[in-house]
Design a protein around this nucleic acid. Structure first.
Length: 838
DNA sequence: ATAGGGTTAG
């Protein structure tokens, strides 16, 4: 049998378009030897073949040895079967043994096209690039099968250019790429984003009739999806008659990868309607879509479907679940999935950490990092980028620095995303110099990196420097995008440089950079914060005229601009917009609305919207409490607090700030003391300096100066100037000059240019009739060119003066009184009591 | 043939 050439090899593709399963095609294109075999050989062949199919290649090799010993002829097809068995099992060393036997058996076998092809396929499937290439290069006659193996290998190895070159070359040599080669070629096209090539392959597949093969058509859907051509992906998908799970999955994945999450969810439901059983890929992709649009119910259904379908939770499905649960804020469920996975990897850990960071649980995130390390997982660039942006978020430069040096030690700082997070961290901590040094050391300066540096300067109040960088990036050939413009503009607005901001705003439009929602929102709220509420409203209208719909974030930001300028009118305009565009579904918007009405002076409306919410959360309780507090309605504020206790909502520091300042405004000492002690003992919270401030102010105003002082002396925090100032202001009512002078000593050192302290001490002196001291202080203010703050009051002095004059029959201090009077008149046009000496 | 994680502006 050995002498004749054994092979009817197909070197032209099968053009029959009817087959939908590649396995069928494989059979029709078989290149097994067909000559008549010796009977004994035949029996061995059957035994070996069936052993190979049962993955018992070792036993098959024993039979091969037996054949050798019995001197039975060994046909090439036997080696072929054996090699095929090794391919299925990825049994590299066994395959190499067979290869050795082939070589030992001499030239016929090792130069037999059938065996040579099988060897190329074997080595290619085992990912031995060099060996496979070498054998392929030595082939005297290539064929579709060896080409397919090589092209597939190139794809797996990431050599996509080589894969496409192979596709062209085989075609040029007269071998027609079949439905095994086409999916690989398409994969290479999407990896290289070569849409033109991909379309060419599509055309070729149509011409050759391969479009009816699901493998080919599913790959086309995937390719178009990965290249962002969703229309084409959808068109191909719609044309497919026999869709399988992979086809559906490819369509879902295409939508997810292009941010069309709603569509992805819809495709999933269609797939369920048709009755196709989902796989792990289906559920994982569906969960990504659900996570991206924070579709809680849908995602949970996905989880249920995975359980019902008995899908094994592998790393990928598990991490999709963790991602989903942490994106919708159900970190406990994410933790549960995490702890039930028995094969964790870096990605799983990173997702848990990132989930904690998203929920603001920085301590838990760091704790997970420690656990991750104790279980022998190293941090990668993703871990570091996550922790770095957490450090930036909470402005913890100590932590940030630690991360930075870890990156340097482990060569992670060359990763652009990591470098970007480092720069952002230093920027948020107002260390622009450090941010810049990192920027300068980074070799790959992309647009994002520039934008982050610009934002670092802009947010630190260095708007001029930000603008300089904005020009510099253009000199270095990086054109700015909307983000860059936005940062520079909001940097100016933060500094009150309204004109500069507006100039840039019109400039960007001349350069045909379209302002987006963020541009508009920053401009509007920036103008409002700088006291141009009217112009802010006009910009808001202009924005709507141009067809831009505000989203939840911009609405909230607009409402806080209303609060900033206390403009009920602007607030009502936005409220009108909210009603018209049916944005009421969002709890955060209703909360902001309540906040706006409470702070802009319409407590009644605030309460009305507060009452419409059935399932309240902490922020809306806080908004209502602070609203009542502002209006001095402590009883109502405490009522809301009781309500939230009934609903088992845990208060936070903001809640207590509201409650304490409500008691403070209403002068309710006992209630204030009760809330304060509840905060510490019942809720185990540490009061901040602000909370102490409220108490001190409350106690000192209610003529309980000693108690207030005791509070200050016993507080675990260093008292700040504001607290001392509060007591100082109270000194006048108690006629306590001694304490006033004592506190002033500190205050004048702590904040030498705060006129409030001078005014407070002056009032104390005035209350005691010490007009000479009042004038002395006034002269110091004059020397220092200090102007009285709008909040500080001279009225006290006037009142005291009036009373003093009335009682001072001896006119012993006439001169100094006249002087004081003259000054007061000038200061605050204190004319209405001009006739008190008449 | 299909699947998971980290970056910039409000």
């Amino acid at each position: 049998m050995a002498s004749s050439s054994p092979l009817p090899l197909h070197t032209t593709p099968n053009l029959n378009p009817s087959h939908s399963k590649p396995t069928k095609i494989k059979q029709t294109q078989s290149f097994k030897p067909t000559q008549k075999l010796h009977e004994e050989n035949k029996s061995y062949f059957h035994q070996i073949s069936s052993l190979c199919k049962q993955s018992q290649i070792k036993q098959a090799i024993t039979l091969l040895t037996e054949m050798n010993l019995k001197d039975v002829q060994i046909g090439p097809e036997i080696y072929g079967e054996l090699l095929q068995g090794c391919v299925y099992d990825r049994a590299l060393s066994t395959g190499q043994q067979i290869h050795a036997r082939i070589l030992k058996n001499g030239g016929f076998y090792s130069t037999n096209e059938y065996i040579e092809t099988k060897l190329v396929i074997f080595y290619a499937k085992c990912d031995l690039l060099d060996v496979a290439n070498q054998l392929f290069g030595k082939l005297e006659r290539k064929n579709v099968f060896s080409w397919a193996a090589i092209i597939g290998l190139c794809c797996r190895m990431g050599s996509h250019e080589k894969a496409l070159m192979g596709f062209n070359e085989m075609h040029k040599d007269g071998f027609f790429p079949d439905n095994f080669v086409i999916p690989n070629a398409l994969k290479a096209c999407s990896a290289l984003q070569m849409i033109g090539f991909g379309k060419g392959v599509h055309g070729y597949a149509l011409k050759m009739g391969y479009d009816s093969c699901v493998f080919v058509s599913s790959s086309l859907v995937d390719m178009y999806g990965k290249c962002g051509l969703l229309e084409d992906a959808k068109n191909v998908f719609d044309e497919i008659v026999d869709r399988n799970v992979v086809t559906w999955n490819s369509m879902i994945v295409s939508y997810v990868q292009n941010g069309m999450n709603e569509e992805a969810l819809k495709v999933f439901y269609c797939m369920r309607m048709v009755g196709v059983e989902p796989t792990r890929v289906t559920v994982a992709s569906f969960l990504s879509a659900a996570a991206n649009v924070e579709a809680g119910d849908e995602g949970r259904q996905g989880h249920a479907i995975a359980v019902i379908s008995g899908l094994e939770v592998d790393n990928i499905l598990g991490s999709s679940l963790i991602n989903f649960y942490s994106k919708i804020g159900f970190i406990e469920d994410a933790e549960l999935v995490f702890s039930n996975m028995f094969d964790k990897d870096v990605v799983t850990w990173n997702l848990l950490i990132s989930g904690y960071v998203q929920q603001g649980k920085i301590e838990d995130a760091l704790d997970s990092c420690r656990r991750m390390r104790s279980e022998n997982f190293g941090f990668d660039s993703v871990t570091l980028a996550t922790i770095l942006s957490a450090s930036a978020k909470v402005r913890n430069m100590e932590l940030g620095k630690e991360c930075h040096s870890y990156c340097v030690r482990n060569n992670l700082d060359s990763d652009v995303v990591v470098a970007n997070s480092i720069i952002e961290m230093y920027g948020k901590c107002e260390s622009t110099d450090k941010a810049r040094r990192v920027f300068e050391k980074t070799i790959q300066r992309d647009l994002t990196l520039w934008n982050t540096l610009i934002a670092a300067y802009a947010e630190s109040g260095l708007s001029g420097e930000a603008l300089k960088l904005f020009y510099q990036m253009q000199l270095e050939g990086v054109p700015p995008n909307v983000v860059s413009w936005n940062s520079v503009i909001s940097g100016f607005l933060r500094n009150g440089q309204v004109t500069e901001a507006e100039t840039l705003f019109s400039e960007m439009q001349c350069l045909e950079i379209q302002p987006n929602l963020i541009t508009w929102t920053s401009l509007i709220s920036g103008l409002a914060q700088n006291g141009h509420g009217d112009r802010a409203i006009r910009y808001f209208q202009e924005m709507q005229n141009r067809g831009l719909q505000p989203n939840t974030v911009s609405i909230i930001s607009l409402l806080s601009a209303c609060i900033n300028i206390s403009s009920l009118e602007f607030g009502k305009a936005i409220h009108g917009y909210i009603i018209r565009s049916q944005l009421f579904s969002s709890l955060s918007i209703v909360t902001s609305l309540v906040d706006m009405y409470a702070k802009c002076g319409n407590l009644h409306l605030a309460r009305k919207f507060y009452d419409t919410v059935n399932y309240k959360e902490l922020p809306i309780y806080n908004a209502m409490i602070s609203g009542y507090s502002l209006h001095g309605q402590a009883g109502e504020a405490l009522e809301v607090f009781k309500q939230m206790q009934n609903e088992k909502t845990k208060p936070d520091e903001i809640t207590f700030t509201g409650l304490l300042s409500a008691c403070n405004h209403a002068g309710l000492v006992d209630k204030g003391l009760k809330v304060f002690s509840d905060m510490i003992s019942e809720y185990q919270m540490k009061p901040s300096i602000h909370h102490y401030g409220c108490m001190v102010s409350l106690l000192s105003r209610c003529e309980n100066l000693d108690e207030a002082l005791r509070f200050v002396l016993e507080m675990p925090l260093e008292p700040d100037a504001q607290i001392l100032g509060t007591i100082l202001s109270a000194c006048k009512e108690q006629n306590n000059i001694e304490l006033g002078e004592y506190l002033s000593q500190y205050l004048f050192k702590m904040e030498p240019d705060n006129p409030g302290n001078y005014v407070a001490l002056s009032n104390t002196y005035a209350a005691a009739g010490r007009w000479d001291e009042v004038l002395k202080l006034r002269n110091i203010m004059k020397e220092k060119k200090l102007r009285k703050n709008p909040g500080c009051s001279w009225t006290q002095i006037g009142t005291e003066l009036h009373a003093f004059v009335a009682g001072d029959k001896s006119h012993s201090q006439t001169k100094v009184i006249y002087e004081t009077l003259a000054w007061l008149e000038k200061e605050m046009r204190f004319t209405h009591q001009h006739n008190m000496y008449d």
